[in-house]
């Protein structure tokens, strides 16, 4: 939870909101000419050339039965202005500003390692592996706040199956783009770049685990991990690695970025667990963005019915 220093800028330096929004509209409009051209050529069935004022491209998708029900969605504005994406700054409001010009096209994701069919897929091909679905999930940050986000994506297991893992494959390792020119945060030694994450193969194959390419009906805004990111709703948010370029099937448990930085604070599993505190703060409660009072954090972020069996017999205090 980092803080903006007030002396960093004066009011006179802040671009007035109407100018800012107009500029965004302009950039969005200009961008759409390009995206529109690409869409007509490459992925006419996936992307419509329409856009809204905020610059996302509308996606075609179906609503999934695996969506979490009975939760109020967190507004688009909050999901896109309050981000942890250290590649673009450690303050919550920085990614929205610093990632504005991040280039997400062309983009290739390499699926490699212990697979029979290694592949390099562009985004359009990834979206053809499985039809896009909307998945409404709770997102619980390790810092103690949460949101409810309507993601759009495909099950990770579809991508993994297509690559045909060999029997030796036991884990899946993910890697974010390494590009300090575009990602100013990577010029500082905050984490050991590039950001890396990992899942056990059965976690990766679980139907709830998705690769998201959009939210609230549109392509992912850059600050939320465009063009493609991982979403594992029963784990703390930092497991949801952003701007993925590499997915490797491996035999041994892969290193993960936060675990490398602080092994006693962030484990490999990082399942949401109200009974296992972060060494420095409690995980028993959380503040849902938009709410005043804290609410109790649920075991496995409320997805225990679906995922608890993955960890039966494991000591979750030790395997945090």
């Amino acid at each position: 939870m980092l803080i903006k220093k007030p002396e960093d800028f004066k009011y006179s330096e802040i671009t007035p909101k109407n100018v800012y929004l107009n500029r965004r509209n302009f950039i969005a409009a200009a961008g759409m000419v390009g995206v529109g051209l690409a869409a007509t050529k490459l992925i006419p069935d996936m992307l419509s050339p329409e856009t809204n004022a905020l610059g996302g491209t509308k996606l075609q998708f179906t609503k999934s039965d695996l969506s979490t029900k009975g939760e109020e969605l967190t507004p688009y504005k909050d999901i896109t202005s309050y981000n942890n994406f250290y590649e673009f700054g450690t303050h919550k409001d920085e990614p929205a500003i610093e990632a504005k010009n991040f280039k997400t096209s062309p983009w290739t994701v390499s699926i490699e390692g212990l697979v029979k069919k290694p592949q390099k897929l562009d985004l359009a091909s990834i979206m053809k592996v499985s039809p896009l679905e909307e998945r409404v999930y709770r997102m619980r940050c390790v810092e103690g706040w949460s949101m409810v986000i309507p993601w759009i994506g495909i099950p990770l297991n579809a991508i993994i199956k297509a690559a045909e893992p060999t029997p030796k494959a036991k884990y899946v390792a993910f890697q974010t783009l390494l590009d300090p020119k575009q990602m100013p945060g990577q010029r500082e030694e905050i984490l050991n770049w590039p950001y890396i994450e990992g899942l056990r193969l059965d976690e990766a194959m679980h139907p709830l685990t998705i690769l998201a390419v959009g939210l609230h009906g549109e392509t992912l805004p850059n600050q939320d991990g465009a063009p493609i990111r991982l979403v594992v709703p029963w784990k703390y948010g930092f497991k949801g690695i952003k701007s993925i370029v590499k997915i490797s099937l491996v035999e041994k448990q892969p290193p993960t970025a936060w675990n490398v930085l602080a092994p006693s604070e962030y484990g490999f599993y990082s399942n949401v667990n109200p009974d296992v505190d972060h060494p420095r703060w409690s995980q028993a409660t959380e503040r849902r963005i938009g709410e005043f009072r804290r609410r109790k954090t649920l075991m496995f972020n409320g997805y225990a019915d679906q995922v608890a069996k993955l960890y039966s017999g494991m000591d979750l205090t030790r395997n945090y």
Binding site: P6, S81, Y82, I289
Partner: peptide, 28 residues
């Protein structure tokens, strides 16, 4: 600093997590 917080409060600009924002700002 206090004026900034009040201004942000009345213009609804205390971020998505106002309590965290106020805590951090007053502490710093």
């Amino acid at each position: 600093s206090l004026g900034d917080l009040l201004y942000r409060y009345f213009t609804q600009n205390l971020s998505a997590n106002p309590i965290e924002f106020v805590t951090n700002e007053t502490g710093q």
